[in-house]
Simulated scan of single mutants.
Amino acid sequence: MTHSEGRDSQPTTWTTLPLFPLHTVALPGVHLPLHIFEPRYRQLTIDLVTEVVPERLFGVVAIRNPTITEVEEPAHVHATGCAVRLREARRLPDGRFDIVATGHRRFRLLSIDTGAAPYLHATVEWADDEPLPDGSEGAEEATARLADAGRAAHRRYCSVAWESDGWQPPPRDTEPALLAYRLASDCILPLADRQELLEERHPLRRLRLTCRLLAREAAFISELSAVPPPQHEVNETLLRPSLN
């Protein structure tokens, strides 16, 4: 259920979502593969597949400290998270699941309910982007230049980071609000950098940040003469769920 109410004379929209704390950051418009093994999150997957959970949406928040294995309060996680929608689920013979979800919409975490269900629930308020500049010719040109710079940084990163040519640039018609996320998704970034991208609510500032991060990481890889592991191995290891 979604509600609207006043806060400091400004309308706000909030809702409740199942909550899945992870040691990674989900980004809007980016696929998130997960291996589901713990009973409570197996149940969440079943509830998503059967649409007991409306719209197959659940919230993902990044855990602040890698030593935390049980999230019990908002202080244990970052305040900005991303609602993701289940796209695919494959049940394994032993009851585990391999799933793919896609980032949908950013939110701010308001509270966590640890007793409502086998898995966590959260009350969140949506945190949408600030508007892009008006549609004047100058604003459109500035947006296009920044998008081109982001794509160029992405090409440079992928050319030095990935041993194969299997990567693909985002489609040319990708919305500016999603482009930074799509470009960054091919880069193995520290959690703090991914969280900074998620928290940045202005699309053009987010593109500038992505350009800087991609350039930095490409320089590191070139200097060290080392490449990240293949992307499928990253998905299987770095994106596994926490022990909640």
Rank of each mutant, 00 (worst) to 15 (best):
L132K: 11
A79M: 11
R64K: 12
P33G: 15
H78R: 09
F58A: 09
S111L: 06
A26V: 08
R85G: 02
D173E: 07
A152C: 07
I112N: 08
V61G: 05
P241A: 10
L48E: 00
F37V: 03
A117F: 00
L189G: 04
I188D: 15
A180K: 07
L179H: 00
N65P: 04
V234K: 05
R205Y: 03
L19Q: 09
L44Y: 00
S159K: 14
C211M: 03
N65K: 12
R182D: 07
P171K: 01
A147Y: 01
R7C: 13
A139M: 11
D173A: 01
S222E: 15
E217V: 05
S136D: 09
D8L: 14
P118C: 01
H121E: 10
H104M: 08
T123S: 06
R212D: 13
S4K: 14
R40C: 00
F107H: 11
H154Q: 05
D186P: 09
T50L: 03
T143Y: 05
V25W: 12
T67F: 13
L17E: 05
C211V: 14
R151T: 10
E51D: 10
T16C: 06
T237W: 15
D148E: 14
A161K: 02
G135C: 09
R108Q: 15
L243V: 12
H232V: 15
T50E: 01
A116H: 00
L32D: 07
I68C: 10
F97G: 04
G59A: 15
L204D: 06
A153Y: 00
E175W: 08
P11F: 08
L120P: 01
D113K: 01
V84W: 04
S4G: 10
G59W: 10
L22Q: 09
S164V: 10
L86C: 09
I63V: 13
A226R: 15
G103Q: 03
S242C: 13
R91I: 10
P131L: 12
L120V: 04
P169K: 02
Q43V: 00
P54G: 02
A142P: 01
S222L: 13
S4Q: 14
S4H: 14
H202T: 08
A122V: 05
F220W: 09
G115M: 02
Q10R: 15
T50K: 02
A218W: 05
I68F: 02
E72A: 11
Q195H: 01
A218M: 06
R87H: 11
L183G: 02
L207R: 02
G6H: 12
L183Q: 03
A127R: 12
P229M: 15
L198F: 01
R182T: 08
S225H: 13
D98A: 09
H76T: 05
E51L: 11
A184E: 03
V61W: 05
E88V: 15
R151A: 06
E125C: 09
L207N: 00
D134E: 15
L179K: 01
R194Q: 15
E125Y: 06
R240V: 15
D193R: 11
R194I: 04
Y41E: 00
T114E: 01
A83Q: 07
